[in-house]
Amino acid sequence: MNALSSPFPVITIDGPTASGKGTIAHRVAEALGWTVLDSGALYRLTALAVQRQGVDADDENAVARVAEQLDVAFHGDRVLLSGHDVAALIRQESVGNLASKIATYPALRKALLDRQRAFRMAPGLVADGRDMGTVVFPDAALKIFLVADVRARAERRCKQLKEKGFSANLSGLLEDMRARDERDRTRATAPLVAAADAKTVDSSCLSIDETVEVVLDFWSSLGFSATQ
């Protein structure tokens, strides 16, 4: 049985960088007792591996080969690359910017597609990213497109980085974020767009709890229970 004929439900949460989709996906998955997929982590892991292996980031096929050979495991908050926890490292802006660049490569997206779909298992999956509802899980029962004002997102990312001990400059983050938004929206392969049947949620003025409640309310409105 392939992922697109699976009986296991999927909720997708797509949106621009730092919109809070990762946090919301984890909280929704926790509320439902489901598995979670942070698809962006796979691109960041590929970017980190490219950096570490000295691979030419402009060589699309070489980058795709790195992705195919990734030794990755997710254990709670731990993200293991070849057995080492790199959860903090992949959140560095240099890794994120490279991930945004290589994510435009069709060969890389193809290499990661089956790996992402393999996360679909009982009792259900919450998947966050930029093309979860449009490309990876087009049959998802509920599709959320999570947005927030770019300044609000930059402030969130700045706070997150400082809390993790990284230096961060708000004006620089704001400039990088606008550039990444434009790159994600205009790339030829799987651009960042809301699926035609997605529910758009603006989290600019919502707390994490309020945003989670909005998503669970949408899920309940489809006739499903919002708890395990």
Score class of each variant (00 low, 15 high):
68 E>T: 12
90 I>P: 15
63 V>K: 03
165 G>E: 00
171 S>F: 10
76 G>M: 09
12 T>P: 11
83 G>S: 06
43 Y>H: 10
169 N>A: 14
122 A>E: 12
140 A>L: 09
149 D>T: 12
141 A>S: 15
106 P>Q: 06
132 M>H: 06
122 A>W: 05
76 G>T: 14
163 E>D: 11
208 I>F: 02
80 L>R: 04
177 M>A: 11
192 L>K: 04
91 R>F: 06
94 S>G: 12
208 I>V: 13
153 R>G: 09
128 D>C: 06
206 L>M: 15
120 R>S: 05
123 P>N: 05
134 T>G: 09
70 L>N: 02
21 K>D: 05
205 C>S: 15
83 G>R: 04
20 G>W: 07
161 L>P: 04
134 T>K: 11
151 R>Q: 14
205 C>P: 08
104 T>F: 04
1 M>G: 14
200 T>I: 12
41 A>G: 13
182 E>D: 10
96 G>F: 15
197 D>T: 08
98 L>G: 01
23 T>H: 04
30 E>T: 01
19 S>N: 03
27 R>W: 11
38 D>L: 06
84 H>E: 14
101 K>C: 10
57 A>W: 10
188 A>N: 07
188 A>V: 14
10 V>Q: 12
169 N>H: 13
97 N>C: 13
18 A>W: 06
164 K>T: 05
132 M>F: 04
53 Q>S: 07
25 A>L: 00
73 A>L: 09
126 V>T: 04
105 Y>P: 10
37 L>I: 05
67 A>M: 00
25 A>Y: 00
131 D>G: 09
178 R>I: 01
94 S>N: 15
140 A>Q: 08
102 I>R: 00
204 S>A: 10
35 T>S: 13
161 L>M: 11
77 D>Q: 11
40 G>H: 01
32 L>M: 12
39 S>R: 03
78 R>N: 07
191 P>N: 01
137 F>M: 14
49 A>Y: 00
18 A>G: 09
39 S>G: 15
141 A>H: 15
88 A>R: 06
134 T>R: 13
93 E>G: 08
25 A>M: 01
115 R>E: 12
164 K>P: 02
182 E>V: 04
192 L>F: 05
59 D>H: 05
